[in-house]
Design a protein around this nucleic acid. Structure first.
Lengths: 191, 191, 191, 191
DNA sequence: CGCTAACCGAGACGGTACGTCATGTCTTGAC
DNA sequence: GTCAAGACATGACGTACCGTCTCGGTTAGCG
């Protein structure tokens, strides 16, 4: 199976960079397949060769950027771990990733295939971290049997709520309160 | 000041109906100013006379539909009230309003003015109900001083998370677990 | 049956002008739906509303331009009439219409529907003139019964041959020789 | 000077075959450099190595196919020779070469270099045959001094006219009428 | 026998144009 | 002034070819 000309890695970078710059400078509306091509100095077809649409481009740029490694905190207590994780997450969302995530969600809302991709490539990785924190706390005897999936929803729900509805910012206070609330909920015996 | 021809109320209904039908039958993608006009047998300009864009049409159709009255449960306990409220809310989301809300959010994500409108016309009304439940519980001595805004986020966060990310359904179990978790969190002294 | 906004006549003119200018200045290659739109300052969709493609636009611009009236010469003899007609025709072809016709033919060669349109709107009108000249000559007793369709082909064939193959120019000499040859052929009894 | 790998003759054939098949099965529109490559199972670059474009490929395939030898009829009279030549020519045009020629002309209409090539490689060869027939007739004393170039145009003009405009087929009747007309015109003293 | 050069398949790449769709504005005539 | 109809400028969509390029992998002939 002959290979043909290999893909140019520099093009991948140019596209990803263009996506981030467009979203930062002109907002999500400006992220358009045509705009990405123009901004990155790449042919439209070349963008389509990598991503089948705006949404795929956003998810692609995102995962290539942030999925490197998600630090798993270890402070000794569940509440401490959760507070540290949330603080870190809030920081990166506030720094700029938040705008990208909002754009990604806007796309997933009318493309279930993309939603599935996004959940697999991004959401589940974050949920796994919390699952691990819960398992560790349980190993320490800090919490008993519980519905971990519900607890994970409890950890991330308010964050997404504020990020997407925009009625309140992602503050450090929220991180602390949430960590405490989840720890308390984890102590409730599962039903 | 001549009055001119009065607006046709039947047109309002036709437009709203078209929005709901389009979203139900063909999904949010199909909700387009042109599509609404075609489906409702109304001129495009006539739709624009009422709503300045897709987002406004969605929010308009939504508030006209559901904002009539939000029943405030009264079971005697905070957890009971919350569970009842969440059950009702989940039911209506699952029944079809969920798809509309997802569409609305998709729009608000790139239109801050619309987001503000939506929060005022829809989100805050729901938050007010929970605020009232919390106030009642406090009056009963069930809970002490607490950060009510955080508790409201705790109530609605996981719901939006599941609705928008789509990783899990809105079950009755979630309503019960969430009510219990919020009640527990409400018992933690505010800091 | 309500009419909607009427078409802007100025737009028609702008489009036709753009077609002629493009063909004159940059050649047939530059006649592109996108180019026409850009040149005429009109939206692409507006061009498509009138013409369904490059070919239709060319034929449209052509018929609107030249089909006003084809002068029918009357010199008293068939050869004189034909020579006058051919001289006029050659003049207009050499002046610029020739380039348009070449473009039109290029299009008709891969669009039979367009070819049919072109024959009806343009070719047959010219053939009719020669048919009339032949009828007049016959009425004068100048010629006998003959296959007029063949004679018409004889009149126009060499012209198209030179125009499309480009091996020789359309000179006055050709007009004279051709007129004489056709007159001679018309005298041959039909078989 | 090392030679490198020699060209694969089978590839030449595959390309030419693809051109003819495409034109026959899907029409001239389908004759595209990419289409030729795909159809012949050859790399695009390999096609470009032989022909610099669609037009070149068409002319190439054509000359490789038909330019072997053009039979020069010899019936004893000019009219007989011309009729025989035209009959043969019409037959081959109707059989399939006509479609190729139409395609070639479409290309030459916006590529003067190609037009020049085509005239040299194809048109002139046919004209030479008629020039020879005229010379022979003159040697026999059948005709006097005349403008042979004009007579050649008279022979081929109607054929191209019908082939390219498509208003009438290339019949045997036309061959006979045309031969007679040209013979008559050849008898007119040159001016 | 190994080197060098051209060939060949595959397919990426920067382009241009295609024809379609939705946007939001406008103009007309009827009511 | 509302309404149905539909033209209009704008701009993105996703596709198709263009002609060039870079790969890896043959074939030759020349040294």
């Amino acid at each position: 199976m002959p290979a043909g000309r290999p893909r140019d890695r520099a093009v991948d970078d140019a596209i990803r960079l263009a996506v981030f710059e467009l979203i930062a400078e002109q907002g999500y509306q400006a992220v358009t397949m045509e705009g990405i091509a123009a901004r990155s100095g790449v042919a439209k077809q070349t963008v389509y060769r990598r991503y089948s649409g705006r949404g795929q481009a956003l998810v692609g740029a995102l995962t290539e950027h942030g999925a490197r490694h998600i630090p798993v905190p270890d402070t000794g207590t569940l509440a401490g771990d959760l507070a540290a994780l949330l603080r870190d997450t809030f920081d990166s969302l506030t720094a700029g990733i938040g705008a990208v995530l909002r754009a990604v969600i806007a796309e997933t809302l009318h493309d279930e295939a993309l939603a599935e991709l996004y959940r697999r490539e991004h959401v589940e990785l974050r949920r796994d971290v919390v699952r691990e924190l819960l398992a560790r706390a349980r190993a320490r005897g800090e919490i008993g049997p519980a519905d971990d999936e519900f607890l994970v929803d409890l950890v991330f729900g308010p964050m997404w709520y504020r990020l997407l509805i925009g009625h309140a910012p992602l503050t450090e206070t929220l991180a602390r309160q949430l960590a405490a609330a989840v720890a308390a909920a984890a102590a409730i015996p599962a039903d």
